[in-house]
Structures are given as C-alpha cells and as structure tokens.
Design a protein around this nucleic acid. Structure first.
Length: 424
RNA sequence: GGAGAGGUGGCUGAGUGGUCGAAAGCGAUCGCCUGCUAAGUGAUUGCUCGGUGAUAAACCGGGCCCCGGGUUCGAAUCCCGGCCUCUCCGCCA
C-alpha cells in the first residue's frame, strides 16, 4: 500500500509509476477526488463531535449545580443523530478509498528499467555454462518415471493434476534439498529458522499483498474458517510482526522457512503443464528480511547472493534477470528473478524471485520500528526471496546430472543428505 | 464440543456512566546527587486522523482502553454479536 500523503502530494509520480506498470491511472484520479471528499466530510463531523464533547461537559456541570439542562440535551440529541449519519458517510468514502489503495501497486525503484513486458527485462549476469551432452538429454518426467522416483499418474489420481507423488529417492531428494538449503541459510548466511503455519488468515494475506487482488490464485478453506493455504512462506513469515513496533536493535532480522506452497495457477491452464514445470503444490525454502529503510537495497543484493549461493553449490548454471517495470509483481519495488537452465526441456526456469518491497507490505501489515529509543515509529522495509523453489530445481538437477543410462549423478553437496552419490 | 474466567499503555495492574488517554508500580529516556557501582532523586514517557505551520517545532480538534454494533446529551465502564487467551471436562494425532 502506498502512503496516502505521497499520493496526495506527488500524484504525478504515482501516475507515472502506474503508466510504467501498464496499470490503469483512472483509479488515481478517483482516489484523489475521494480523498478530498473525505477530508471535507471529516472536517464537518469533527466540528460536530467537538461541540458534542464540550456541551456534554457543560451538561455534567449543570446537573452538578442542579440546573435544568433539558434544552442542551434536546439539542445534542439532534447533533448526535447528525454525527451518526455523517460518520457512516465518512465510513463509506473511506471504504472506497481503501478499496483503491489496496489494489494500487508499488512504485518501482529508480534502478528498475522501464519496459512493457518480460522482453524488456535485463539479464544482469550469468553463472556457469550449460552442460554439453554427447547424447540427447531427456526431459525430467521421463527420467523420474523410469527411475520410479516420481509417480505423476498416482499423484493425479489422489489429488488431481499438478499434485506430485514423490517416491523413494525422489521423496528423499525433496527432503534432502530443503533440509540442506535451510542448513546453508542458517549456518552460512545468518538466517534464523522458523516453521510457520501452512494456513493463514485473511489479514495476513492482505498484509503481504496476495489479497484482495489475487484471490483466484489462492486455495481457500470452505466452512467458516476463512483460512488460506500458504502460496509461499512469505505470507506467514512476513506477517509474524504484523501490528508490532520493533526496536532498531531488532533489525536487521533474517528469517528462513520451509513450507509447502499451494497455488491454483488460475489462468495458466495448458501452460507448462508437463512434469514439474507448473504444479499446484510444491516445496520451497524462503528467506525473509526485516530491515531499516536506508539499508534495504544493500540487503536486497545480499539476499540475491544468498539465493545464488544455493545454485553455485549445486553447480547449476543460472542467470539473474532484473525485471522491468511492466513485469514487476504488484508489491515489489524491485525484483530479480533467478533462472536456471534445464537441458532436457531446453528452457530457462524461474526458481527464485528476490524482491524489495520497501514499506509497501509493512504499511499493509502495519509493521514498524523505532529508529531511536523514544523516536516516532516508522514503517520498516521487508524483502524476500526464494532460496529456492524445489520443483524446477529438481527439473534442472535431474536433467543436468542425467547420464546416458538414465541414472542421475548426485551433486556433492547433497550426498550426505541423500545417502547416495547416484540415483538409479 | 461443554462449563467457567478474562482481554486496559512497552509490562504488571486499578478503574462499573461525566472532571479518564486513563491511578499506582515496573521498565525506558534525560538530568541531579553520591570516589565507582548499587541505591536515591527530579522531569519526561502511547498510537493515529484532520487543521494551522515548511511534509519542522509548536498548537488546535477528532478517534483509539480486543473488534463491530447498540443504549445515552455523554461509554474503558451498561447491552448485543464476534474474535482471542486462560482453567476444568470431553474428544483426539
């Protein structure tokens, strides 16, 4: 959510940001108009309330001195009902304002390239060379099926397409990967491990920006619970400090968490549906940072480096892509995607998004900190990045480390976790 | 799921219709004092919205005692609904 004062005082800046994001600017004008209406109505109703307060005090005094206050009471009865009426008018305006505010995207940082769509994204660096083969590499679904480490058919049978049943070393590979990643982040990168609920309430989903705009992508419980399945650990972890004021000494704070992630992938029917490329439930290790505003862009680079380290240790070639304004996600001010190469499907696959949200989420979730003892609280900055998402990593891993006989060489780093150096 | 108790400031905790944004204590900040420390002592100590102002200080006004309604001239206080916490019972991995 953007700062109302910023929208009011620098509407042109906001307008340009919306244009750069291919976003509708009509809502901005509507917002400004409603904001004006709100302040006008507030001014009126607050004057009435001030009167009510002072006359009520008079009435108390009069009663004390046994004077007749009937006239005042009658008059205040009128004022009271007028206040009630105007309060509901203000509430109506405010709810329209917040509808707009909660659906307005973040302003891209000045270092973000202006562009229309993903073709304008900028590759900032590449690491490693895609492996060359002396045989034709096969896609992961063939490898995994013939090794019987993933059972796509039975996964679909028990849950539906896009739900994966891992078996044997496939199951253990999942467990190995997220255990190992958590170990790397906690022991080498300074993160504290948390293990959050897999379901969260509506407030949390609004806090990190999944709601109200992206409701159709989320799994929601029926009955009266009104709970959502985590689409990412970002949601429960970022909202840990919802409605709190932290001390400056509490920052920066680095948290890492493993969760299963649930996504409807609404609107992507038929796209990348084979194998593990796009699934409804997957495992992911996430990194979340709470930092002081002036440090957030340095922290962002380090967060990205932490995600890259995972791929380097696995010796998986990747490239880092800086998203342009038109491809940037709703909440982010700046975002790097990390893509890894999968030779079997011959595609670069996104396995991580590392974003700086500045105070956009902090404002929604009301997470603040006190820069100095006794100072006024300010919104802190939140960041997060996948470190990393498993399915596409497994795709690249299987396809990169496949041998001509269909077996998979296990990368050095994972061998202690997987208990073998080859999947056969 | 059943029965009971309760949700007040950073914390503990008083407050059952008006003078309460809220006693007291703790903590914190700034100062004083005592060779140092401990102790003592004085002051300060919430958030938010709107206005004036320089998007400062300061000042004025509104709102906030879990949330939402209601009663009333007036609600932390009374009534209704919800959420949460604790205790006991039941069920259960």
């Amino acid at each position: 959510m953007l700062d109302t004062k910023l929208i009011r005082s620098e509407p042109d800046k906001v307008r340009q940001a919306l244009i750069n994001r291919n976003s509708d600017t009509d809502v901005l004008d509507l917002f400004l108009d409603l904001d004006e209406q709100r302040r006008k109505a507030l001014w009126e109703v607050e004057a009435l309330k001030a009167e009510r307060n002072s006359v009520s005090e008079q009435i108390a005094q009069m009663k004390k001195s046994k004077l007749d206050a009937t006239a005042e009471i009658t008059r205040m009865r009128e004022v009271g009902s007028r206040i009630k009426q105007m309060d509901s008018e203000v509430a109506e305006i405010e709810s329209r304002i917040s509808d707009i505010a909660y659906n307005m995207p973040n302003i891209p940082h000045s270092s973000v390239p202006v562009g229309k769509d993903e073709s304008d994204n900028v590759t900032v660096r590449s690491w490693g060379e895609p492996r060359t083969f002396d045989f034709e590499p096969v896609p992961h679904w063939e490898l995994a099926s013939s090794l019987d480490i993933i059972d796509f058919e039975r996964g679909s049978k028990i849950a539906g397409s896009g739900f994966i049943l891992y078996k044997g070393l496939g199951a253990r590979l999942e467990r190995s990967l997220f255990n190992w990643m958590l170990d790397v982040h906690t022991t080498e990168h300074g993160y504290r491990e948390v293990f959050p609920p897999f379901l969260v309430n509506r407030r949390a989903m609004v806090g990190t920006g999944q709601l109200p705009k992206f409701d159709e992508d989320m799994y929601h419980t029926d009955k009266d619970d009104d709970l959502y399945l985590d689409p990412t650990a970002e949601v429960p972890v970022t909202n840990i400090y919802m409605d709190e004021i932290l001390n400056a000494s509490d920052l920066p704070q680095y948290l890492t968490a493993f969760t299963a992630c649930f996504r409807r992938e609404a609107g992507s029917a038929g796209k990348d549906t084979r194998g593990l490329l796009r699934v409804h439930q997957f495992n992911k290790v996430e990194m979340v940072k709470f930092v002081a505003p002036e440090t957030s862009y340095d922290e962002h680079e380090r967060l990205l480096a932490n995600a890259e380290a995972i791929l380097q240790k696995l010796n998986i070639p990747y490239r880092v892509v800086l998203l342009c304004t038109g491809d940037l996600s709703f909440c982010a001010a700046k975002c790097y995607d990390i893509e890894i190469y999968a030779p079997g499907v011959d595609q670069w696959l996104e396995v991580s998004s590392c974003s700086n949200f500045e105070d956009f989420q902090a404002r929604r979730a009301n997470i603040r900190y006190r820069p100095e003892p006794g100072a006024k609280p300010e919104f802190l900055h939140t960041l997060n990045g996948s470190g990393v998402a498993l399915p596409r990593l497994v795709v690249a891993l299987l396809e990169t480390y496949q041998q001509s006989d269909g077996t998979i060489v296990v990368p050095e780093a994972l061998r202690p976790y997987l208990g073998t150096d080859i999947i056969s």
